[in-house]
């Protein structure tokens, strides 16, 4: 991840991760980031039956489904200022808010279940979907209350419950049952990135660990 992008119209060079123009006539300008989701096709299809999908072009050999496994074995870029909190190629879901940033190791989020934490003083929820690959983050503040989430015990399908009301919530952050049914948590964008890349652009980042 992370490269330079070049626009034909002005010949300016842009940084992928920040959307910032580093060189050329538009230097200092920044592209607006739009919210996006990185989830499995099945999750997206179930949640957005109205969606279109971009088709493969003919005659191109696209990477195989397991291409990320091969990438994860590549060496990481050497960087003398590198922090060693995590292995360089560890995948994290990074969140920036209020000038603070926290890296949530995706493996930890998967294993520990929903993560109730805070970024920049704001309570957030980081949760892996039933497919095990998708990770989403939400603000835990709803009205005047801060909710704390658990995995619903014994549920066959993916469901979270909140501690205060026992309402059930789905992976899109909507309450599907209980006193809060119909309420929707606000999303906060997380960026899936390798640790070596995330720490380079967020040198002050905290790293989430279970029990802290």
């Amino acid at each position: 991840m992370n490269f330079l992008m070049y626009d034909e119209e002005t010949g300016s060079w842009w940084q992928q991760i920040s959307g910032e123009c580093l060189f050329g006539p538009l230097k200092g300008k920044k592209l607006v980031r739009i919210p996006s989701d990185e989830v499995t096709l099945s999750t997206w299809r179930a949640e957005h039956p109205e969606s279109t999908a971009v088709r493969f072009l003919a005659g191109i050999r696209y990477p195989e489904s397991d291409w990320e496994k091969r990438i994860s074995k590549l060496p990481a870029v050497a960087d003398s200022k590198r922090r060693t909190d995590l292995p360089p190629r560890e995948l994290v879901a990074g969140i920036e808010f209020n000038g603070a940033s926290v890296a949530f190791p995706i493996e930890t989020v998967r294993a520990a279940g929903p993560v109730n934490h805070a970024v920049g003083g704001e309570p957030v929820l980081v949760v892996a979907g039933a497919d095990g690959n998708s990770v989403r983050s939400f603000f835990r503040r709803l009205g005047g209350n801060v909710l704390v989430f658990y995995k619903a015990p014994g549920a066959a399908e993916f469901a979270l419950i909140d501690e205060a009301t026992g309402s059930r919530w789905d992976f899109s952050g909507r309450s599907i049952d209980g006193p809060l049914a119909g309420r929707q948590l606000a999303r906060i964008q997380n960026t899936k990135d390798f640790w070596f890349d995330w720490q380079r652009y967020n040198p002050q980042t905290a790293v989430y660990r279970v029990g802290r």
């Binding site: 989701d37 990185e38 096709l41 957005h48 971009v54 088709r55 489904s65």
Partner: peptide
């Protein structure tokens, strides 16, 4: 849509009235 497997990742975007999935492999 069957170009990628159900378990493959997509980048999903919703803007206004339109929603689109971009397969990560793409």
């Amino acid at each position: 849509f069957r170009d990628v497997a159900d378990s493959d990742m997509v980048i999903g975007v919703t803007l206004g009235s339109e929603t689109r999935a971009y397969p990560v492999r793409f």
